[in-house]
């Protein structure tokens, strides 16, 4: 006779298997939009954190090793967000979502790198210009998140 313990273990195994199968299924339009919003939120966090740190550096409030770490971390976060969006083909009806988001993510990576370069070269005018661009980009990413959340 099968003991209750074995039935319980089998039940748990089936639930786990169903859970894994559910998570491994290809994304539908809803999943894709959710992932796109998640990528946009990551880029938004990166863009705004770098803008805050860049302004603080301009004001003489940061140490170089700290700033360098923050910029590296956030540049990495934007690269991961780009991979997340490019890593899966958009299901029917979500191509617009991808086409709206990708340019923002590309610009985020570029602006962070350019700000980093301007800060390294002590180019105050360039820093101000890239900080403005990051603020503007942050607003557009925020709009994207609001629209699709």
């Amino acid at each position: 006779m099968i003991s209750r313990r074995w039935i319980l273990a089998a039940g748990v195994a089936v639930v786990v298997w169903l859970g894994v199968a559910y998570r491994a299924a290809p994304p539908d339009a809803h999943d894709y939009r959710r992932d796109a919003v998640s990528a946009a939120q990551a880029a938004l966090a990166a863009v705004r954190s770098v803008a805050l740190a860049g302004q603080a550096q301009q004001d003489g409030k940061l140490f170089d090793p700290y700033l360098s770490t923050v910029i590296d971390d956030e540049a990495g976060a934007v690269a991961s967000a780009q991979q997340q969006v490019l890593g899966q083909p958009p299901p029917d009806g979500t191509r617009t979502v991808r086409d709206q988001l990708l340019p923002l993510l590309v610009q985020a990576g570029r602006e962070i790198a350019d700000l980093d370069a301007a800060l390294s070269h002590g180019d105050h005018a360039g820093v101000g210009q890239h900080l403005n661009a990051l603020h503007d980009l942050g607003d557009r990413l925020d709009d994207f998140v609001e629209r699709y959340q």
């Binding site: 938004l44 966090a45 603080a56 004001d59 409030k61 940061l62 923050v70």
Partner: peptide
């Protein structure tokens, strides 16, 4: 105070320390 109004989700320890720098400067960050 710093991140919630900007709709920023934190995911690094660097972000955790930044408000101290914004408020007090280099000494605060150290």
């Amino acid at each position: 105070q710093v991140y919630h109004p900007l709709n920023v989700k934190l995911d690094t320890l660097g972000q955790v320390a930044l408000p101290a720098a914004l408020a007090v400067g280099k000494l605060g960050l150290a």
